[in-house]
Amino acid sequence: MELRIRLVFAILLCTPQVSLLAQENNPQKSVYSIDFNNFKSSFRQEIGFSFISHFARSPIVAEYNLVSSGVSYPQPVYNNVFGVFALTYEPKFRLIEAGSSFSLSLDLPLTGGFSVVDLTTPDGVSYSSEEVTPNDISTGVFSKERSSNLGLMNAEFGALISFNFFQGSTIENINALGLTFSGGVNYISAPLAMNFIDEYQRSDYKGFLNWTSVVGRLGVHAGRVVFYYTIGINPTRALYYTALGNERTVYTNTYNRFSISFRLGR
């Protein structure tokens, strides 16, 4: 993984030099790097939406201690975001353009969503960070549970490097369709609003409410409209045991979102 990130950075660092070489060697310039004097031609912005198509799980943040017959079966606990509606504003900076059909851009999507957020086990037990006391243990209580969801709403901030082909790749491209492949990181904070009815405190869940996922994204451009599918590309496959000793697996640190975006301006 680290190697891949280094490769991407290496490509990014080398591209301006490639661009300069191209300019020196070829008077018919076809590779351009971002031009701040003519910034509008290197900038694109989109606004996007998703509706019941946005789901995320954090990495394992705790373990729920399920005890049966003197054996403890730790269950993975992760922050689970079920997105109902999300709105994204996404500026895109074309760092490099090659001809009129390819560009490499830095995309910075900023997302706010209405979502239901809970810290759960795979079986849906709501994990509570409340301390387990010796008295609890003496009465057979080894982990605490909540009776309701932890809170609502989430915010995300991403930084993606995108390879854009055809439509949408450059300002002058006139193809009907285009493709975008992106990779980067997405910082998620959830929930934004804690469940005040049951008086859950943010301070009690410090460390459970923010995480960063590595994501990949596929975009299909059709005119001003872009259909995006974003997926977490660094998930964790957690193997755990049920109280009957059966082996189970669950994927955590996952991200799935299907969204539709519209280009703003040119």
């Binding site: 005890v67 054996v71 403890s72 057979g140 660094n234 755990y240």
Partner: peptide
């Protein structure tokens, strides 16, 4: 890329001597 980045974690069960 998508399939090669999956990490594996095992949550091992352990005896809890409530005795």
């Amino acid at each position: 890329l998508l399939t090669s980045c999956v990490k594996e974690v095992t949550l091992t069960l352990f005896e809890l001597p409530d005795l």
